[in-house]
């Protein structure tokens, strides 16, 4: 199945959105692994402290992902 990941903050240089192909019944942890395989090594430390979210909430690593979901990768935040 396919998901789209909206990119923010330090991941912006990679574009606005990344599309990933995942196994059926994927979880957030599967998204993380597929995402890691598509980002350069210098962003892996940032990815380790980043979270995946949808428009409603930050997602747990074992949360199930619906096919064609649109998620976001949230690096450490610095608002205000």
């Amino acid at each position: 199945m396919q998901v789209k990941i909206q990119l923010f903050g330090a991941f912006r240089p990679l574009g606005d959105v990344m599309e990933l192909q995942l196994v059926e019944q994927a979880k957030v942890s599967d998204v993380r692994a597929a995402f890691a395989a598509n980002v350069p090594g210098e962003l892996h430390d940032t990815l380790a402290v980043s979270r995946f979210a949808d428009e409603k909430a930050v997602l747990a690593e074992d949360a199930a992902i619906a096919p064609n979901a649109i998620l976001a990768i949230l690096p450490p935040v610095s608002g205000g």
Binding site: S50, R51, A57, V58, A60, A63, A64, P75, P76, V77
Partner: peptide
């Protein structure tokens, strides 16, 4: 910045 914690997390 600040790494996001579990606050507000939910599972589908």
């Amino acid at each position: 910045g600040h790494a996001l914690c579990q606050h507000g997390e939910h599972q589908h």
